[in-house]
């Protein structure tokens, strides 16, 4: 009987690959690395059982030293079950990362850095009047949460004093008032409906 060199070499290779893989950024590779580490450890436990021997079923005529040590195998079974559960959970996490971020990589804690760099006032959560942000990219928002793009564009263009409307012209002020969605036309007289 001798030490099983093949098993030991495989164990070493598994450890090496496992450690290399958990240093990767891709989550799937990290998972593969963890699986390799767990399996290498199982082989290590097997190796601690000593030389290969007979299956440990008791028979009177057998020398006790000829049996294999059953305890490491029981330990390996337990550890396989545990690593199975952890692997299943990690797969779930990886899928969730994919669903959330569409990438299979360990995320930088961008949020953390941003929070560290900016004041604790959060424009999206804390503005007294909720700002509509869903349709537009965040660049249209100023740091204080107010929508800047519309007003700055309006200021940049030379404001006309009067705009053509129907047959004649009306003042720019009134035109702006009318263009606003939902605004009532306040000047009742021009409509003539009040009287």
């Amino acid at each position: 009987m001798s030490v099983n060199l093949t098993l030991l070499t495989v164990m070493g290779a598994l450890y090496a690959c496992g450690i290399y893989l958990i240093l990767e950024r891709s989550l799937t590779r990290v998972l593969l690395g963890l699986m390799l580490l767990a399996n290498a450890t199982n082989l290590l436990i097997l190796a601690t059982g000593g030389y290969a021997g007979l299956a440990p079923f008791f028979s009177k005529d057998t020398d006790p030293g000829a049996y294999n040590d059953p305890l490491p195998q029981a330990l390996i079974l337990t550890s396989i079950v545990i690593s199975f559960a952890v692997t299943a959970f990690m797969l779930g996490i990886i899928y969730r990362t994919w669903v959330l971020a569409r990438q299979d990589e360990i995320q930088d804690d961008v949020e953390d850095r941003r929070v560290a760099a900016t004041p604790s006032f959060d424009a999206e959560d804390d503005a007294v009047i909720p700002v509509e942000t869903s349709e537009f990219p965040l660049t249209m928002l100023g740091s204080d949460g107010a929508a800047v793009s519309d007003s700055s564009a309006a200021e940049a263009a030379p404001a006309p004093a009067a705009v053509p409307a129907g047959g004649g012209t009306i003042s720019a002020e009134d035109a702006a008032r009318e263009e606003k969605p939902g605004s009532a036309n306040l000047d009742i007289n021009t409509e003539g409906g009040g009287k």
Binding site: I22, L27, V30, L34, L37, A38, T41, L44, I45, A47, T48, L71, P72, L75, S79, V86, F89, M90, I93, R96, T97, L100, I106, Q107, D109
Partner: peptide
């Protein structure tokens, strides 16, 4: 999920170390 990944990987590595130590002790 991001914090969980760090936590799980670190914990699993520490458990593997513990298991290796147990195997060595055995």
């Amino acid at each position: 999920v991001r914090a969980g990944v760090t936590y799980v990987v670190v914990s699993v590595v520490s458990s593997v170390l513990f298991l290796i130590a147990i195997a060595m002790i055995y």
